[in-house]
Design a protein around this nucleic acid. Structure first.
Length: 310
RNA sequence: GGUCGUUUGGCCGAGAGGUUAGGCACAGGUCUGCAAAACCUGCUACUCCGGUUCAAAUCCGGAAGCGACCU
């Protein structure tokens, strides 16, 4: 019998965690996080880990793929997918209900569409052989293997090499990728009117700053996480780092960070619309409803047989 | 009340008779290995009224707003 995976997603600041935890409580479930930043230890306030939300009516809801890497370490969709498979299987083996929850569209899509990602290791021989080629030659070579989508892969030599390395590995080992267990899906998206999303983002940002956002970033810097890394993590980590380095005033930081979070929420929605266009139905629910009511709606949809299998 | 200056799209900001400055915001999008990243596209405005001119955001006159100074 295939398991039905319940996925709770949506743009930032829409209360995904609380809803997922409530549903986990009702369905006897465990949560697998689909958040590319909550994997890092010590990045708590800025990523909105809200660990208190995982306690519902005195019951601790188990969660997975949170706090599994040190800040600054590498993590990518490939590692996420592996982690997902492992967590999913252990949850199912325990007879519990897996619930995927998070706003990283790529990660959600990787699960729902069943991405096949090869375990391409770093190959020093390959890299040595590539040394003599120009960026353009490498780009041409990559273009002959895959359809180049945007600049992401060819932006820097590092990324270019990595992309090529992966494709070369794929060619040599066409069947070497972790297999997702078969499952069916219900994807639920939590949605607020846009002006309310903006309002919630602002509110939450002020709260994060009050709770010690800048101190958290300072600690990460003190503990040796490279500045470039924090800048790359984006949003809170990027803007607060700039502020701590004296590159902007507090007010400028607040303003620019607020803007970036709003834009992030917009891009998330762009991603979700794209998923829908590509045939992944998202069951949108009104975020403004009370939590219990939202949970009722999702529970009902989940327990009915109307959801598609993959 | 008088004198001088100023007025450009949601914001900042160049231009000085005849193409769209640009940036930011905003909106839409791309994206299967850093995705909270990176990248792409769209957005044609010159305070108002009259005049000069083939042609005015640009020149002239007036009005209004804003600013500075004077009595």
């Amino acid at each position: 019998m295939t398991t039905k995976l319940l996925t709770i997603t949506g743009p930032t600041a829409c209360g995904k965690t609380a809803l997922a935890a409530e549903l986990a409580f009702r369905l006897g479930g465990e949560i697998i996080s689909a958040d590319s930043r909550q994997v890092f230890r010590g990045m708590d306030i800025g990523t909105g880990k809200d660990l208190a939300d995982y306690c519902v009516c005195g019951t601790r809801i188990p969660y997975h793929l949170i706090d599994i890497r040190n800040a600054g370490e590498e993590y990518s969709v490939y590692q996420f997918l592996n982690g997902f498979i492992e967590a999913f299987q252990s949850i199912v083996n325990r007879g519990r209900q897996p619930i995927l929850c998070g706003g990283t569209g790529l990660y959600v899509e990787a699960v729902v569409k069943g991405y096949q990602l090869a375990d391409a290791p770093i190959d020093p021989d390959f890299r040595r052989r590539m040394e003599s080629f120009s960026d353009q030659q490498l780009t041409d070579r990559l273009a002959s293997l895959i359809r180049l989508h945007n600049h992401t892969d060819t932006e820097t030599r590092d990324r270019l090499l990595r992309a090529l390395e992966i494709q070369e590995y794929r060619l040599a080992h066409p069947d070497d990728y972790p297999h997702l267990p078969s499952m069916s899906h219900l994807v639920v998206g939590v949605l607020y009117p846009r002006d309310q999303v903006v309002q919630r983002i602002g509110q939450r940002l002020r709260q994060r700053l009050d709770e010690g956002m800048t101190e958290e970033v300072q600690q990460l810097l003190d503990s040796g996480v490279p500045e470039e890394r924090l800048l790359r993590y984006g949003l809170e980590y990027r803007h607060v780092t700039r502020y701590l380095r004296g590159q902007c005033t507090y007010d400028e930081m607040y303003r620019d960070l607020f803007t970036d979070i709003r834009r992030f929420a917009k891009r998330q929605m762009t991603w979700f619309r794209r998923m829908e266009r590509q045939g992944i139905p998202i069951h949108w629910i009104d975020g403004t409803l009370p939590l219990a009511q939202k949970a009722n709606i999702v529970q009902e949809a989940f327990l009915s047989d109307s959801c598609e299998s993959s």
